[in-house]
Structures are given as structure tokens and as C-alpha cells.
Design a protein around this nucleic acid. Structure first.
Lengths: 187, 187
DNA sequence: GTTGCGGTTCAATCTGTCTTGAACTACATA
DNA sequence: TATGTAGTTCAAGACAGATTGAACCGCAAC
């Protein structure tokens, strides 16, 4: 909720500024991403970079979003690890610049495949282990085993669904998703 | 992480107990649900009730999972609000008992439709608003408007996808999901 | 070497959330 | 009315995680 009201002059290489509509986007993404268990400010940084469409320096990000030096350093590093932001440095530039990954679907696909799937998978494994132990236990009623099986089935189901999604996103198989790619501003 | 090591005698109406394999399930669900932005203990309570397959009293839940009186009261109330647990009281019983909703898909469908969709929807709305404002602004470059449009398209897309999922879950349209319903322990 | 700048690190701090436990309500029963 | 049990509430405390800010490193220019 920091840089919400900022909307001052934008002199290149100077103090960053955020227009109201930009703030709207940046915070919308921040909220969404926060629910998805990332840091709100990670979402805000990515959204800013994506909106601007060019690489910004850490200092620009810092002043535009009203973050601290340390915070920006951490946030961009984390975003880099998710391959959601890349760090670039042109020859005669004396500062790193950060740019947003623009292929939305691939980006989401990657995150899901690396994070969500791991989680679902480990839950599925725990359920399977529990099921095995319970089966060896004589006094576990049939219906309980049934419920265990149902939970496991669900986990497997979700795991498969995520895989389908990830693959779809990766190959951009469906034409519909095309609108989401850069370089194809049809309409 | 409380009742992890407990595994003592289970004398009806007495102090609750949790077998190792039960703890495994309860915690797996707890972890999953925590990532889904619910409280870990909400997941644990639901999992316990689902596993046991019968209605338990607050006191039983409390001692089995090692929670406080107040916590159980809050947790079950919240779970009730999500229609994930129901509160029942038989004629001559002097305590409420809590039972888990057993239709996994419908349960998840309901949660998604009430929570996730609302979130995605409000993000979509913010993006639309930003887009409108930006369009009225002369010096917003074409590509920026394009990126805004792409984000909005994605939000719309996700919103639709969730709707499909929710409807599918609600009507149990696909036969595959049948395995997940109660009363149909095929295989 | 030293000054300046970009960037990182990390202990301390802050923040927001969950949990606790004691006080309280409601409603039995004696 | 007094006593007991089930359940709720909520202020206080505990906790986890995010954020800060100052010290620090590396490097280039002087």
C-alpha cells in the first residue's frame, strides 16, 4: 500500500513515479500474487516492470514503489529465481536493470510446475504412505480405507490436471492463448 | 505440529488420540490447505472429521489435535461458514457434534466459486478500470495498452476456467470424478 | 589509495495473523 | 438458587514473516 498516492513528475533516471492507473494495476497484481502465497511486493515489482515494458534500475523500482534498498534487492533476486524477471546490463551501463518476463502463460506454467505441483505431489505421497500403513492395520474399518483412497485419488487427479495445464502453457498448444503472447497484438 | 506424536488409548468419549497414519493425513491436508490460504488447523480439523467419518464433539477434536478450547470453537465456526463441516445435535445429546462434508469435489467447487472467483473477478475489474483510464490518457504508448489488454485477457480466461471447473464439480458431469463421491467404493 | 556508486547482507524491528486462556453466556440439573 | 457442562468471545501474547537500515563488498574513476 506504499506508493499508492504517488503521481509526480517523471524525469528520466530520476525519482520514480506512478500514475493512478498504474498503481491500480500494480496493486491488483500485488493482491493476486499475495493470495498465491508470494509476497505482495514481488507482484508489484513484476507488474511495474511488465507495464513499463523496459528494464528499470533497482533505484527506479525503489522510488517508484516506495520500497527500501534492501527490499528491492531481495525482491528482484526472488523474482529472478522464479524466472519471472531477468537482470540485464548493457555495455556502458554501470547499473543492473531488471525486466519482466512477458510470456504470461509460460511464466505461470513454470511457477505452477515448480511450486504447486511439488506441493500436491508431496501431499499425495503422504496420503499414499498413510494408506499403506492403515492397510496393514487390522482394525481400520473398510470405509476409512475408502476415504483414504478417495483423498489420494483426488490428489492424483489434481496432479494430472496441473500437468495438463503446464504442458498446455508450455507449448501454447491452444490458439486461444495466443492473445496472451507478446508480439501478437491482434485486434 | 501439536498432536503429532500422540498415539494413546482411544476410550470412547474420552481423551482423543491420533494414530501415526492419521497424523500423516491430518498434517498433509493441513499443509495443503495452508498453502491455499486457509489456516493449517482448519485443514487438520476437517481431515480428522473426514477420516473418522462420524461426528465428533468439540472436546474430542480439541484433545485429539491438541488445540485449545477457543481455537476449536473458532475453527469449526469458520469451517461451517465454508460449508465444509456441519454441526449436528441428536435428541438426547447434550453437546454439538461436528461432521465433515464428504463430497470432495463439490466442497472444493464451492470454495473456489466463493473465494477464488471473487478474487480473480476483482483483479479483472481493477485491470479494466486501469485500462479505461489509460486509454483516455494521450501519452500512454500503444504497447502499454496492449500489455494491459493481455493481462485483462488472462484474468478473463482464468475466470472462465474456474467457472468451468466449478460447474463440472457441481454437477459431477464427468464420470471420472465419480470415484471421489461417497457411497461408490468401486474397486 | 580513496572516493563514490551499485548492490548485498543480516540483525533488529515491525506487522499482521493465530492461539491462548480466562471471563462470559446459555442452559441444563439438583 | 447454586452447580456444572458446552460453547463463545476477545484482549493479550506468541509467532512467523516481511521490512528496514546500516554496515559491508566490489569495482571503477580519480
Amino acid at each position: 500500500m506504499r506508493g499508492y498516492l504517488r503521481d509526480t513528475v517523471d524525469e528520466e533516471t530520476g525519482v520514480g513515479t506512478l500514475r493512478p492507473w498504474e498503481a491500480l494495476v500494480v496493486d491488483a497484481v500485488g493482491n493476486l500474487i499475495e493470495f498465491w502465497n508470494f509476497k505482495r511486493n514481488q507482484g508489484r515489482v513484476w507488474a511495474l516492470l511488465y507495464l513499463r515494458g523496459r528494464a528499470l534500475t533497482a533505484a527506479q523500482i525503489q522510488s517508484t514503489l516506495g520500497l527500501s534498498k534492501g527490499a528491492v534487492s531481495m525482491l528482484v533476486r526472488e523474482l529472478e529465481q522464479w524466472c519471472v524477471v531477468v537482470r540485464v546490463r548493457s555495455p556502458h551501463d554501470d547499473a543492473w536493470r531488471f525486466a519482466a518476463e512477458t510470456e504470461l502463460m509460460k511464466m505461470i506454467g513454470r511457477v505452477i510446475s515448480e511450486r504447486e505441483r511439488g506441493l500436491v505431489q508431496s501431499v499425495r505421497e503422504d496420503l499414499e504412505r498413510a494408506e499403506r500403513i492403515a492397510k496393514d492395520d487390522d482394525d481400520v474399518p473398510r470405509e476409512v480405507l475408502d476415504r483414504l483412497r478417495r483423498m489420494r485419488t483426488l490428489a492424483v487427479f489434481v496432479e494430472k490436471a496441473l500437468k495438463v495445464f503446464v504442458d498446455t502453457a508450455r507449448f501454447d498448444a491452444i490458439g486461444v492463448l495466443d492473445v496472451l503472447r507478446d508480439k501478437t497484438p491482434r485486434n
